[in-house]
Amino acid sequence: MKKHTLVALMQDRPGVLTRAVSLFRRRGFNIESLTVGHSETPGISRMTLVVESEAVEQVVKQLYRLIEVLKVSDVTDDPAVEREMALVKVHCTNTNRSEIVTLTQLFDAKIVDVANTSIIVEMTGSPNKVQNFVDVIRPFGIKEMMRTGRVAMVRGARTHQGSDYVGAEENGHVAASTWN
């Protein structure tokens, strides 16, 4: 099944995240990652989700049924910057510490904590690159890991701005169909 990256803008009202997540569960949509946070517009949250589905159009349409959802875009085939961050606590010893440091530098990752038997590495990059880093570092012994899931933004002048949708009631339908 194809993986799709969706970017959604929604009003930051109580329960909006629960509504979205509950919707995915009950419609049986398989969500690989979901990240949500503030957008550039106050009161508007931005969600990036990666969904594995043949029926991505249904995911988009069902999201639009939520009153708070302003805009959902499938950016899978758009030129987009996609990033993920991972914090990885790697087991280390006096003998292999420098090897880990070298690998970290090769991946443009950052060491953010050093202790006697462990190092925390902050790795930010495309989801592929983060995965490669994790694969390479795993043999040293990963004690803990937290990955954020993907965030995405389309390159160039095209925008997904919250301010395009709030206070624009006169502009006809906003969150209606993908058909019209």
Binding site: M10, Q11, Y64, L66, I67, E68, V69, L70, Y165, V166, G167, A168, E169, G172, H173, V174, A175, A176, S177, W179, N180
Partner: peptide, 12 residues
């Protein structure tokens, strides 16, 4: 204030 709720009434 329902910027995300604009039912389409008129068919395309």
């Amino acid at each position: 204030a329902l910027p995300g709720y604009k039912p389409t009434l008129q068919g395309n």
